[in-house]
């Protein structure tokens, strides 16, 4: 018997996100997403920055020439999420949405509380 395991080893980008990266990044630049512990109301917060230095173990997600780079550690807790660019009255910003690893997201959407890490389960 075969058991089909689909691994969600990707992070999606929405069209708005792709457009915005194109608009603000020059050729060798890309958008970098990092997750920082011990910050924000949820305990873990997302950080976006424009960068042009790649490190080893970085995950690169490329679509239509727009690049999103996530380091290995951060990737493990945003895997399966969607990166969006919102333009609302309150802010214009990149946002991580529908993160399957988040148990709860704070009101402003910049921080989240992850589900217990699988490796820590007893």
């Amino acid at each position: 018997m075969f058991k089909l395991i689909i691994k969600r080893s990707f992070v999606k980008m929405t069209q708005e996100c792709i457009q915005q990266i194109k608009k603000i990044c020059s050729n060798d630049q890309f958008l970098r997403l990092t997750v920082e512990g011990g910050a924000g109301c949820g305990g873990f917060s997302y950080k976006f920055e424009i960068s042009n230095t790649l490190n080893t173990n970085d995950h690169i997600i490329e679509e239509n020439g727009s690049k999103l780079v996530i380091d290995k550690d951060s990737f493990s807790i945003v895997e399966g999420a969607k990166v969006d660019y919102t333009q609302e009255m309150i802010r214009r910003a990149f946002l991580v949405k529908e993160n399957p690893h988040a148990e709860m997201t704070c009101g402003c959407g910049t921080s989240f509380n992850p589900k217990p890490f699988p490796s820590k389960k007893k």
Partner: peptide, 13 residues
């Protein structure tokens, strides 16, 4: 110990 370890993600502490 578990709590600090969890939130010290990518932090030097």
């Amino acid at each position: 110990e578990a709590h600090i370890q969890r939130y010290a993600f990518r932090k030097d502490a």
